[in-house]
Design a protein around this nucleic acid. Structure first.
Length: 414
RNA sequence: CGGGGUAUCGUAUAAUGGUAGUACGCUUGCUUUGGGAGCAUGUAGCCUAGGUUCGAUUCCUAGUACCCCGACCA
């Protein structure tokens, strides 16, 4: 893409109404537009990043055998009443509205109920199970306080997956596979090293749920972690019994601040029983399915990546989620060759942003390149052409090098 | 929802009970070109409603919006 074509502007200064690093940098770079507190629009560059994150998640969920669906944002009051979760006293994040035609609707903050209910139309027998479904759904939550940029919004994108199994054995096996899949997602998204599966409170159905917590200063959670053993415990379940069960001593754990990027939850058969998602088993009996619920805050994940990967100059995208793999920058004297290279790179299929702006000064272009954080910067200028070359510099590194022009096309962009 | 704070050109900010200034941006022109170029030129602003006052962007009250801490959550 030509940068002259991109309608978004970069900003020298962060908006005064943003405190969080992720929002400051993403708005300065033109990735995001703030619509209101807790609601951000994704502009072309931001959308590219978001789609890259979604692609990683989608691939891993597909590999688990989950089929992608898209449920509705509008939800039925009656359905949520069956699980006693319509009342604002039970769920305090509901956005609700009334229909002109009469009746009330809710805006989806979760989709466990609608999905389980929907499956009643499709699951009759043990032969129909397992069913694994996932979706990328905007969630609307009437939070009392939105904060931390896209790490905690009133409107955000979630990947939620649900597993319906016919037996505890199958259910547990899938649950454990899902843990691995989640670890791969965070690894691929560039935060694997600092993301830990964390034992958290399990609610009414099981002892534990499992959270995926990323160490980060801007985090809202506190966990107790043993790096070597990679055991992490949310402070909400930290007690002697749990420590003993996990075979770890309190003094082996350190307290760290984290952000929760994922959560997986075992509902057992209770939720399906409540909702009447029953199937006929081998013995001809009607029994409830085993339900697992698995969430990744996709937009939060993007925020966490920025919090994790930036410096004072801007964002440093992991290449797996970067809006482009290469940033081709034409500086004075290099315009003609840069044009040609852009054409060649495009025909080769390289994912490249080309700074062809004639109005921007060299300094401005270089500052913008750092701010946008594309992994590989390629500068073409009079200076590099004297050596019959282009300058390449990784965003993660301070030093640049000159390579020959014809070598650029063979350069493997990672 | 409890507590604290803020609101001034597009952005970031300053000052002021009586005429609102600066920087960046943007316009136009000339000169420039490897870390947000220079000179000139033009452009554009006091959140809303009440109150106090001869007079309010400024003081007071309320509202609204936004930020932070807490509580709650991907």
């Amino acid at each position: 893409m030509r940068q002259s074509f991109l309608f978004t502007a970069t900003r020298r200064e962060a908006p005064k109404d943003e405190e969080s690093t992720n929002a400051k940098l993403l708005i300065r770079g033109g990735f995001l537009h703030k619509e209101m507190a807790g609601a951000y629009a994704f502009l072309p560059l931001g959308l590219r990043v978001l789609e890259n994150i979604k692609r990683i998640i989608r691939e891993e969920m597909n590999a688990l055998g989950a089929q992608e669906i898209l449920m509705t944002t509008l939800q039925r009051k009656e359905l949520w009443e069956t699980t006693n979760r319509w009342d604002d006293k039970e769920v305090d994040v509901w956005f609700k509205s009334t229909l002109h035609a009469g009746g009330e609707v809710g805006f989806g903050w979760s989709h466990e109920e609608p999905i389980a209910d929907m499956l009643k139309s499709h699951v009759e027998s043990f032969r129909d199970l397992p069913v694994y479904v996932h979706q990328f759904q905007p969630k609307l939550r009437n939070e009392l306080r939105a904060k931390s940029g896209i790490m905690r919004g009133r409107e955000f994108l979630m990947n939620d997956m649900y597993s319906f199994d016919s037996s505890e054995e199958h259910h547990t096996a899938f649950y454990n596979q899902a843990i691995k899949a989640y670890e791969r997602v965070f690894e691929r998204a560039g935060i694997g090293e600092d993301t830990f599966m964390t034992f958290a409170s399990g609610g009414a159905f099981t002892k534990f749920s499992h959270e995926f917590q990323t160490i980060i200063d801007a985090g809202e959670d506190k966990i107790y972690l043993n790096h070597e053993k990679r055991i992490a415990i949310n402070e909400e379940v930290l007690n002697e019994v749990v420590l003993q069960e996990l075979g770890i001593r309190r003094d082996e754990l350190v307290e760290v601040k984290t952000a929760e990027v994922g959560n997986i939850f075992n509902f057992g058969t209770a939720k399906c029983e409540q909702l009447g998602l029953l199937f006929t088993n081998e013995a001809g009996k009607r029994v409830p399915a085993w339900l697992g619920s698995y969430g990744i805050g996709v937009t939060r994940l993007m925020g966490v990546i920025v919090e994790k990967h930036h410096d004072e100059k801007g964002i440093i995208w992991p290449s797996s989620v970067a809006p482009f793999r290469m940033h081709l920058v034409a500086l004075p004297g290099g315009e003609t060759i840069a044009e040609k290279l852009y054409g060649d790179l495009q025909s080769k299929g390289t994912d490249v942003l080309y700074d062809d702006r004639v109005s921007a000064s060299p300094g401005e272009k270089l500052m913008d390149a750092d701010l946008l954080g594309i992994p590989l910067r390629v500068v073409v200028s009079e200076r590099t052409l004297k050596e019959d070359g282009v300058e390449i510099k990784k965003r993660t590194e301070a030093d640049s090098q000159i390579i020959k022009i014809h070598d650029l096309l063979a350069y493997e962009v990672i």
